[in-house]
Simulated assay, not measured.
Amino acid sequence: MPQPPSSPPSPPSARRVGVLVLPGFSLLAEACATEPLTVAGQLAAAPLYHLIILGPTARPVASASGQGLMAECSLVQAPDDLDMLLVCAPGAQAADEALRRRLVELATPGRLIVGVGGGAELLAHAGLLDGYRATVPWSRLDEVRLAHPRIRLSSQPFEIDRERLTCGGGTAALDMMMTLVGRQHGSVLAERVSAHFVLERVRVGEEPSPGLPGGTPESLTEALALMEANIEEPLTTAELAEHLGISRRQLERLFKKHLRAVPSRYYLDLRLQRARRLLRESERPAGDVAMMTGFSSAAHFSTAYRNHFGLTPREERLS
């Protein structure tokens, strides 16, 4: 096997995290999965995680929006001393047989294997989720369940089962990785990371969405989880209802009764709040933020943002 190129060593106390990105991966999902690890180290003023970007080759990898991320080395050359391998992919089709075999080689005891969005489906296709509780993107749940009956699939936004972590993508990755930070470094640091991202609290997979009373119908809780997991590629109200197994009219009644809102408006508000956090907490261009929050164009994003907050994304950055 070729030797990996030399790279700056990670601090002795840092966990080494390989971040595999494959062509067509989601920028939002990748950012939501890696930013909590980076922020945890900044807040702790200690080297907690050392990220190593991996790709099919040591070249830039294009995301779904066309933005590139430079891979330090190929997955074949990935260091053998990784503590965690995080896979960001558009789906199982993103990897050839050689790459899937390498994933299996790297799934050694003691190493965390993390599937984000389509990366979770890729892990399923490689046989790495058999016997584990896991989740995949909502749109692929039924297909994966039929193709891989040995996986204990759930409809939760994310799942952590022993050495396997999976989520449906999008902001679900944020919750999943902050939960991991809490397990590895304590709840106090996890809460500080959560506060950094202006979230109410770190949510675990079994809990309802924040702000909802305990008696909230399960269908509404799952609808909100679906929305949070699909920020970059929003679902229509009809698609939400179909995933939940209820009619569109039933879903609209639930939102009106418990949230005094219509699903489409609530979903838009959720996406715009996420966009506002990205504009305030990151240096990503407004065009990237638009793509990461499900807007088809910068102009559409700017109009919706101004109508909601009373100022444009550019003015938000300057305020």
Rank of each mutant, 00 (worst) to 15 (best):
L251A: 05
P2R: 09
P36N: 01
T38K: 01
R314S: 10
E163F: 00
S247H: 06
V202P: 11
A304F: 10
P36T: 01
Y132N: 08
L128Y: 01
P263T: 10
E242W: 07
T221G: 10
P47T: 05
M178S: 10
A64C: 08
S10F: 07
R265V: 14
L270W: 13
M178W: 13
L226F: 13
I113T: 08
Q42C: 11
L272Y: 03
R183S: 04
S13R: 14
M291A: 12
V116D: 04
Q77F: 01
E316D: 08
L43R: 07
G119L: 06
S297Y: 05
A172K: 05
E72L: 15
V114R: 07
P2S: 07
R201T: 15
R16F: 02
L272S: 02
C167W: 07
L270Y: 12
T108R: 15
S63K: 06
G117W: 05
F197L: 03
D175L: 01
A29K: 08
P11L: 09
A98E: 15
P313A: 06
R306P: 03
R16Y: 00
A33E: 04
F197H: 05
L75S: 11
Q93N: 08
H300Y: 08
S155T: 12
H185T: 06
L220K: 04
H50C: 06
A190L: 00
T135N: 01
A238F: 03
V87D: 06
L82K: 03
M176F: 03
A92N: 06
T237M: 00
C73W: 15
A29V: 12
A241H: 07
V204I: 13
V181F: 05
S247P: 00
A195I: 02
R203F: 00
S194N: 15
G294T: 07
S155W: 12
L189D: 02
P12S: 06
A14C: 09
L278V: 07
S187L: 15
A94T: 04
P12Y: 09
G287I: 05
E191L: 06
Y267I: 10
R183V: 00
M176T: 01
V17N: 05
E252R: 11
V87E: 07
V39A: 02
E30V: 02
K257Y: 11
L226E: 09
A120K: 09
C88T: 02
C88V: 06
E35Q: 12
V262M: 09
L27A: 14
Q77N: 08
R248C: 07
T303E: 12
P2H: 05
P217E: 09
T237Q: 12
A45C: 11
R164D: 04
R201D: 10
M292G: 00
R201A: 13
S187H: 10
A190P: 10
Q67P: 02
S219P: 11
P137G: 00
Y305F: 15
A62H: 04
P9R: 12
W138N: 13
S63G: 12
E239N: 10
G55C: 05
D175H: 10
I151K: 03
L180K: 08
A62T: 05
A94S: 15
P157V: 02
F295N: 00
Q3G: 13
P36A: 01
Q3R: 12
I53N: 04
H125S: 13
R133P: 02
A14V: 09
